[in-house]
Write a protein that binds this DNA or RNA. Structure first.
Lengths: 270, 270
DNA sequence: ATATCTTAATGAACACCGTTCTCCCGGTGA
DNA sequence: TCACCGGGAGAACGGTGTTCATTAAGATAT
């Protein structure tokens, strides 16, 4: 493409059997070296912009201005890349020093910050759901969480399940949040470049739909409609969390009489 | 659609947020009746044989000995097909008549049979996790579940969350089960046509791994290792379920004194 | 300075994927 | 009898993850 001069007889196009020599066009503007970290970073950029469906190796490569195959020198496979993204979610995740008197508040804090991290990247809950934290980098976090439960005095069988239980709850809750968000986006932004959430309108439609159900067949759904499509996801998250915490607390040896003083509603998350 | 579940309440009109399906199945088949039902059936066959990654329109078509494009006369899209599979999971799912005195046992039964259904098809939990039961066919089930919670006397805010909570728990638990199963299969059956689970060997390896962790850094993980990789998934499922049930029970107006007589450990003991 | 080795990036290729389009066959209603 | 039309066939389009041989560039050794 360099020599398209008009005056000189143009070279014929190369015959198919002779290998075309690129003649060193468009090379090397002294770019920063590609690294695993940069690949993961670009993957997050693509994920946030296009969602998990749009997260392809080619898109990541395009984000970096690099060939697709160059990525495989740093990540091994797409699954590998997703696992790196999953692991990176927990970078700098501070785990509490177990304090038996504050264990419920500590779990609350863990769960809320976990949800916050999941919400910080689009479709991140879907990625998290597909992975298990039993890798070398993540085991310390699991240990710290189990420490909270066990030093709180929970029986071993309960403590062992508690970790899975709240982790699954966090992932599942945020995943469902994302599904509603996507649905609302598809609802409002029809093919437009920018799909605005349009959540209030959709919540209204759902309310109307629930209200239109035959009252004799769906009394409870109608009664709870307002709470189910509640616009305050934070509150819903805290309620589910509290249910689990109360269930765990009931296994404390000294909890012969219901929830302790710390098991009330959370003081409204920010 | 011709044979709706007889025992369950009638399906309401489709909600506005669920995508409209062509639903052009009305012609009486004269010859080979390639029907929506047969497509879904073939999809399940492929799913069970090849897993979710191997479930492609082309594979389904091959299963039926038919061209790929023929499928689109009956299902509209792959997402549509997945939703049909998700919906079919609940076919013939009998929901209990709410009985305030047996509500915990009713929830236990619901959860266990839900898990059983999820386990009846490979990777089904992943499909279930990606969907929401607020479609016309599934709303009656949601209603019935909420009925159990509400007639049990749970406050509305709690009952509204309880449905999501245990549904998420069931899906999440089975999804994790499947992940371990896959990992074990990849572990033992290396490329072979038949990947045997080989679970005991992998459980041993995990035990060894946990045991090899530095005791001063991972005391709790080491202490709980045996319970975490327990070979009895049924028991683990029941324990997590019991935690949730106890948490819910704590919101009952008359539960000033901890768990009631029905909230003990599941009958199956270690 | 020259030759060699190493590393990372390239572009083409492969085998798939979901979806759509056109074409054609065969049974049905008039 | 004949036009019609729905359902299946087959090819095609643009996209996917991954692999391969080749090349450009830098470092090292002679």
């Amino acid at each position: 493409m360099t020599d398209a001069a008009a005056g000189t007889p143009a070279s014929p196009p190369p015959s198919p059997w002779e290998r075309e020599r690129p003649a060193r066009v468009h090379v090397a503007p002294a770019r920063t070296p590609l690294s695993r970290e940069r690949v993961v970073e670009a993957a997050f950029a693509v994920l946030d912009r296009q969602g998990l469906e749009g997260l392809s190796m080619r898109q990541v490569a395009a984000e970096l201005g690099v060939a697709v195959s160059a990525l495989y020198a740093h990540v091994g496979s797409k699954d590998d890349l997703l696992e790196l993204m999953y692991t990176r979610l927990y970078d700098g995740f501070e785990m509490p020093e177990p304090d038996p008197r504050r264990w419920q508040e500590q779990v609350r804090e863990y769960a809320r910050s976990g949800r916050r991290r999941l919400l910080s990247h689009r479709d991140m809950a879907r990625i998290s759901m597909a992975h298990v934290p039993f890798t070398a980098e993540l085991l310390p976090h699991v240990e710290a969480l189990l420490a909270v439960f066990r030093t709180a005095g929970l029986p071993d069988r309960i403590a062992a399940e508690a970790g899975d239980l709240i982790s699954t709850y966090i992932d599942g809750f945020v995943l469902e949040e994302g599904m509603w968000r996507d649905r609302a986006a598809r609802h409002g932004g029809d093919g437009s470049s920018l799909a605005r959430p349009d959540w209030p309108e959709m919540a209204d439609e759902m309310q109307n739909y629930f209200a239109s159900l035959p009252p004799e067949d769906f009394p409870h759904l109608r009664a709870l409609a307002g709470l189910i499509v509640s616009d305050s996801s934070d509150e819903r998250f805290d309620i589910g969390l509290e249910i689990i915490l109360r269930g765990l607390a009931s296994y404390l040896p000294d909890s012969a009489a219901g929830p302790d003083q710390d098991a009330g509603r959370a003081p409204d998350a920010t």
